[in-house]
Simulated scan of single mutants.
Amino acid sequence: MREQAKIDGITESVIFRETAKLHGLTTDCTDFELFAQALAEEHVKRATELRERGHALPGAAAVLDALDADSVQQTVVSGNVRPVAEIKLQVFGLDQHILWELGAYGEDHDTRAALVRLSLQGAEATAAQTVLIGDTPADVQGAHANGVRVIAVASGRSDKAALRDAGAEVVLPDLRETALLVKLVRGMSGS
C-alpha cells in the first residue's frame, strides 16, 4: 500500500479500515483478523530489527519493577492488537509485571475510551483506583472519558504542551524519576 491512515493514538482496527478506504477497498472483521495475525507474525520475525531500531524509554523498567514491588496491578491499554503489544514489550524486557488479561487492545474496540472502559471492567477497578500512564492526547482523552486520571509522558510525537492541552493531570518529560512516579500513582489512585 502506498498510503496509510493517520496513526497517532488510533487503534489498529481503525488504521486498517481507513487505510483500506484510501485504496478503495471495503473490509470486514475477517479481513482485519487476517491482517492482525499477519501483523503479529511480522513483528515476531522482525523482533531483532525492532530491538536494534527502538528502545525502551529510560526509566520504564525501573518504574514497572517499583510499581510491582508496591503491589500495583499493571496492564496495557493499547491501540495495537494484543500479540503486537506483547511482542513490543517483550522485546524491550518490559513484559514481566503486566497482567495481560486485564488489558484492552486494538482488536477489542475502535476507540481509546472504550478500551479504557473494557480494561476497568476486566480489572473490576473503579476510575478512582486507576491511573493511566500514556503519551498521546488520545490516551488522555480516553482516560478522562472514563473518569481516570492521567500521568502523561512526553516521550513520543506528543510534546508537553499537547499533553497539557489535552488535560493530563501530570506531564513528565520521561520516566527516570522512579520514586516520583510511584508516589504520583499512589497519590492519584488513593492508595
Score class of each variant (00 low, 15 high):
Gln4Trp: 08
Gln4Gly: 08
Ala5Phe: 06
Lys6Asn: 10
Asp8Glu: 13
Asp8Tyr: 09
Gly9Phe: 09
Gly9Arg: 04
Thr11Glu: 00
Thr11Asn: 02
Glu12His: 11
Val14Gln: 04
Val14Ile: 13
Ile15Trp: 02
Phe16Trp: 09
Glu18Ala: 10
Leu22His: 15
Gly24Ile: 12
Thr26Phe: 12
Thr26Pro: 06
Asp28Phe: 10
Cys29Lys: 15
Thr30Phe: 11
Phe32Glu: 05
Leu34Met: 12
Phe35His: 12
Phe35Gly: 06
Leu39Arg: 11
Leu39Phe: 14
Lys45Glu: 15
Ala47Thr: 13
Leu50Tyr: 15
Arg53Pro: 02
Gly54Asn: 05
His55Ala: 14
Ala56Cys: 06
Ala56Tyr: 03
Ala61Ile: 04
Ala61Val: 01
Ala61Gln: 10
Leu64Pro: 04
Asp65Gly: 05
Asp68Cys: 11
Asp70Trp: 03
Asp70Glu: 07
Ser71Tyr: 08
Val72Gly: 01
Gln73Lys: 12
Pro83Lys: 10
Ala85His: 13
Glu86Trp: 07
Ile87Tyr: 13
Gln90Thr: 06
Val91Ala: 01
Val91Asn: 01
Asp95Trp: 05
Trp100Lys: 02
Glu101Ser: 13
Gly106Met: 02
Gly106Arg: 05
Thr111Glu: 14
Val116Cys: 04
Leu118Phe: 13
Leu118Thr: 09
Leu120Thr: 10
Gln121Pro: 02
Glu124Ile: 05
Ala127Gln: 08
Val131Gly: 07
Leu132His: 01
Asp135Gly: 08
Asp135Cys: 06
Pro137Ser: 07
Gln141Tyr: 10
His144Val: 04
Gly147Asp: 10
Gly147Thr: 10
Val148Cys: 06
Ile151Thr: 00
Ile151His: 00
Ile151Cys: 03
Gly156Trp: 15
Ser158Leu: 07
Lys160Met: 11
Ala161Cys: 00
Leu163Lys: 00
Arg164Ser: 04
Arg164Tyr: 01
Asp165Cys: 06
Gly167Ser: 03
Gly167Arg: 06
Gly167Asp: 05
Ala168Asp: 04
Leu172Asn: 05
Pro173Val: 10
Ala179Cys: 06
Leu181Met: 14
Leu184Asp: 02
Arg186Thr: 02
Gly190Asn: 09
